[in-house]
Amino acid sequence: MEPASLENLCVLYHSANYIVVNKHWDIRIDSKMWYEKQTVQSQLKHRYPELADPYTYYGFRFCHQLDFSTSGALCVALNKAAAGHAYHCFKNRLVTKAYLALVRGVVTEEKITLDFAIGKNTTEGKTHMMCIEGNEGCENPKPCQTELTVLEYGAYDGDPVTKVLLQPLTGRTHQLRVHCSAIGHPIVGDYTYSLRTDDAPYRMMLHAYFLHIPLENEPIHVIAPDPFVPSLDSKWAPQRCVNILEDLLKNILSKPQAEIQEDPEPVHRSSSYPVESEEQQAQCQQWLCEWNLD
């Protein structure tokens, strides 16, 4: 993908109810800051001004979150009813997500279930970070599970790395980044969770590759093309394939979702008032934060 601009929004799926975009890396979904002109919100308004909803703060209802540094599949609801149907799928643990990542070092085990409770880091200078239970300053840790499967071994810019598929079984802020760092294999280009040492790559190598939302009347099944291939990044040199990505996706879809995930607080909506109240916006934002998986 080329760097983000207002014009180059990549749409993977579009219907009367939903749009799924391939979000660029290093771009926010939305922002209240006047100086941040380039967001997914502004890209959508530029491409589809007629679809913006004046009764919502941002104009569009984002069904889940992706971090600033993460690229990949992001679903947007185009009306209140569609947002409610998507919310139902997330609340009932029916949504399936899978991410691609390049991580530092050689992950020796072919498949690992990462099981570290994650909480907010209250240590001075690290309050923007999350950390695993047992670390000093870890506040209110919650159970978290991620399944990691090795895809390929290789090198990035001459250093050993492993290409992996990450399936979050829970939804916690920075979950995938924290879990990879916790086992000594931080994501390539993750400046924050490499303790500010990994700053050479042009981006963080985490990508929301697969999204499946089993909506009753309109199931969404989207793949955002793999950006971690030598033809797009010559610094990535795969050397040995361990698992085939397409086969892993078939296995993922056949499994039930994990029961450990906590239910988000329900968002109560009134059909009598078209404008969302501040309380509704706050409740919705709290739910979205629980799905900021990267």
Rank of each mutant, 00 (worst) to 15 (best):
D294M: 03
L6D: 04
L74V: 06
D263R: 15
K163S: 14
K142G: 04
E2A: 09
Y58F: 15
S270E: 03
I223N: 00
G119S: 04
H85K: 15
F116E: 13
L245Q: 10
V164T: 08
P238F: 03
A82M: 14
D199I: 05
E124D: 15
D233T: 03
H212N: 12
M33I: 03
N121V: 07
K111Q: 14
A117C: 12
L248E: 15
Q239D: 15
Y193I: 05
Y99I: 01
S181M: 08
L169A: 05
L94V: 01
D199F: 09
V76F: 07
K32G: 14
Y209Q: 07
F60K: 00
E133L: 09
A101P: 01
N292A: 12
D198C: 09
N135M: 13
S277E: 04
Y58C: 10
S71E: 03
V229Q: 05
Q43V: 13
C289W: 06
L169G: 02
T122Y: 10
Q38F: 11
D247M: 11
Y87C: 05
A81M: 10
D233Y: 11
L245R: 11
A155H: 13
P238W: 00
T192W: 15
N121E: 11
Q261C: 08
S71A: 02
Y202P: 00
K97M: 08
K111P: 03
A117Q: 05
E110P: 02
S270W: 07
L211V: 03
G184W: 05
T146N: 08
S71R: 01
Y87A: 10
Q167R: 08
Q65T: 01
C10L: 06
A73M: 03
E7W: 02
L249F: 12
R172Q: 01
K142H: 12
N121T: 05
N92L: 00
V150R: 04
V229H: 06
K111M: 14
L248N: 05
L6N: 02
G134Q: 07
R269T: 08
D67R: 04
P49V: 08
S231P: 00
T162R: 09
G84D: 06
E152Y: 01
Q280D: 04
V164L: 10
T149D: 04
D26A: 09
F62H: 07
W34A: 13
P274G: 06
L195Q: 15
M33K: 12
C180T: 02
Y35R: 13
D67L: 06
L211T: 02
K163C: 13
E136R: 08
P214D: 04
L166R: 08
K111F: 02
S181Q: 09
V188H: 04
Q257D: 10
H85D: 15
F116P: 00
K80L: 13
L248H: 10
Q281H: 04
H24Q: 04
E262W: 06
A101G: 07
L206M: 01
A224I: 04
I112F: 10
Q65D: 02
Q286A: 15
D67N: 09
